[in-house]
Amino acid sequence: MQIIQPHYHGIARTAQDYERMAMSGVVAVAEPAFWAGFDRLYPETFLDYFRQISQFEPTRAAQYGIRHFCWVAVNPKEAENPDLSREVMRHMPELFQAPTVLGVGEIGFHLTTPNEEAIFEAQLEMALEHNQLVLIHTPHLHDKVRGTKRTLDVLRNMNVDPQRVWIDHVEEHTIREPLDAGYWVGFTLYPITKCSPKRAVDMLEMYGTDRIMVNSSADWGPSDPFTLQQSVMEYRRRGHSLQQAIEVFHNNPCRFLGQCPKFDIKPIRVETIDE
């Protein structure tokens, strides 16, 4: 089955992960810009990072036949440094011209501070000005409810088209409001701290499959790219058809990401052949 991994931090993973993903049906990944595990001190460090995910990482993925796309942004955690953030943001519009950059992400809240909010709003304005898709990170663990509500408040106050915004890392307690407001949502599968493959399938069964994407993030922390395949397997094990699985794990990423013309992978349909 063909799978798209819509949120994947390839720079933190090995070539063997690409190889095994390719062998398990992954045809494309999209890599948001995120926190490196330490706070960077220089704008140039971000610019090299953007160059890495927009130029170098596609060459690694291509060795295994996987298409690699990316997003650029100052992530929520480092948005706490407004001067650094604004200097990095000054260079982002030129990145929007790169052939594999899909939009602005991941932006949003980490601890939901005033500095984070100011940079979140500024990056949203930049995305609107440059007609970019938006990928929003919602906070971890006990901060998730507050951060998600504030995210929706910020979006409500701006003239965004919900169809072009993906609110990621939703779970059972934060899925309803973004979906009801017309946004795309993402389930991020982590072994311990976010959603599990079974719970993701529960939510697909409860809320349907429209405007929902599933990803495993797969970064430098405790994470596993193959939780996505576990979720595919769980979805199929519960009796959902191959085409239904393709709708969730391949076609929905095509539909959201394909709003950017650079993402040219189209939805697919399984047909039998009478011979």
């Binding site: 072994p191 311990i192 701290t193 599990s196 079974k198 719970r199 529960d202 409860m206």
Partner: peptide, 20 residues
């Protein structure tokens, strides 16, 4: 703590699944 939180969530989700 996080491991136990995760296991409790899985138990809650299983009970919800059963009830549905």
């Amino acid at each position: 703590f996080l491991d136990v939180r995760c296991m409790l969530l899985e138990i809650g989700a299983m009970l919800d699944r059963y009830d549905r």
